[in-house]
């Protein structure tokens, strides 16, 4: 297991290096000078020159890349002062430290993701398993149709709809906002309630369908029939024999979903104007803010890769064939 983790981590570093290089060099392929933004309206060539030098844009691109990457590991010294590791530099747009901004924004994204995931996983798996158990009945058909309809909805459609109804018309809740959990748990909960519900509607529908089909598949396995032939009760067969195998596709998809949600639920955050990583990513791309783009990009990629590794480790936990081969 340890060997597996080490090997996968090494692989992850390689992937992250490739992602960073591609992002970095692509950035320079965009014909837009990031210094123009910092320079403002009354920009002179001299001022631009100064900003170029301050941002380090006068150096050759590979050297910039090298300095940027080594800064992440060892920290860097900037004109503004020392930047301790992990140093992703300062924003071109507003001179904020990149790492600080990410750390600042991350709790919003985590709150949104974890809260939503707990709900959609629980309800989705439950509904899917009930549907599988009652396969072919009216209940199953209702669940299946309902989840098909909901999963074909989009957040940017349901989101504003719910906002209009719950916030503006009925005035049941306030406009969604992020309040740190540590400061005001109740405010945290109320502020995120609508986004959670909207995120989970769509994911729940997907997970219901996934859990249902995967459970039905498992129930048809030979070894499940053997368990019945041994006289195991329906409950034992369902929860001990069939359930375990049905988790594998669910874990796979859940890992992918969670990884990408941690990197920023762009559409959701944008729909509800929540200051998370997703909005940060969108803004920084619009502002040609290289250090910020790089920072968010690598941060998000790290999570996706991390969850990939976790998923593989969970496989080994679920299935002895993976563990022992």
């Amino acid at each position: 297991m340890l060997r597996f983790l080490i090997r996968r981590s090494l692989g992850a570093v390689v992937i992250l290096l490739i992602i960073s290089a591609v992002t970095f060099f692509l950035f320079y392929a965009v014909p837009r000078d990031p210094a123009m933004l910092a320079c403002g309206k009354n920009c002179t060539p001299d001022a631009l020159e100064v900003i170029h030098r301050n941002l380090g844009l006068d150096k050759p691109v590979p050297q910039q890349y090298w300095e940027f990457m080594s800064g992440i590991v060892t920290g860097r010294d900037f004109a503004q002062g020392p930047c301790p590791a992990p140093c992703f530099g300062y924003s071109f747009a507003n001179s904020d430290p990149v790492w600080g901004t990410i750390v600042d924004r991350f709790p919003t994204t985590v709150s949104l993701t974890v809260g939503g995931a707990v709900v959609f996983l629980a309800i989705g798996l439950g509904a899917g398993m009930i549907a599988a158990h009652k396969k072919g009945t009216l209940l199953d058909k209702a669940f299946s149709t309902g989840s098909l309809v909901l999963s074909s909805m989009q957040i940017y459609f349901i989101g504003p709809l719910v906002l209009a109804l719950v916030v503006y018309n009925l005035e049941l809740l306030d406009q969604p906002q992020y309040v740190p959990l540590t400061e005001d748990p109740a405010g945290w909960f109320m502020g995120l309630l609508i986004p959670w519900c909207v995120v989970q509607i769509i994911f729940t529908a997907n997970y219901t369908r996934l859990a249902r089909s995967s459970m039905i598949e498992q129930l048809q396995e030979d070894h499940v029939r053997t368990a019945r032939a041994k006289g195991m009760s329906g409950r034992t067969v369902f929860f001990r024999y069939a359930w375990r195998g049905s988790l594998i596709p669910i874990v796979t998809i859940f890992g992918v979903d969670l990884g990408s949600l941690f990197g920023g639920a762009m559409i959701t955050e944008w729909t509800f104007s929540l200051p998370g990583l997703g909005t940060l990513a969108v803004d920084s791309v619009q502002n040609t803010d290289l250090p910020m783009v790089m920072g968010v990009m690598l941060f998000a990629a790290t999570f996706i890769i991390l969850f990939n590794i976790i998923v593989d480790a969970v496989y080994a936990f679920i299935d002895p064939r993976v563990r022992l081969s």
Binding site: D222, H223, T226, Y241, G245
Partner: peptide
């Protein structure tokens, strides 16, 4: 009453 199936690989639970 007990039963033995054809393919012992799939008929035993892998877990």
């Amino acid at each position: 009453m007990a039963m033995i199936f054809q393919d012992p690989l799939t008929a035993l639970s892998p877990y």
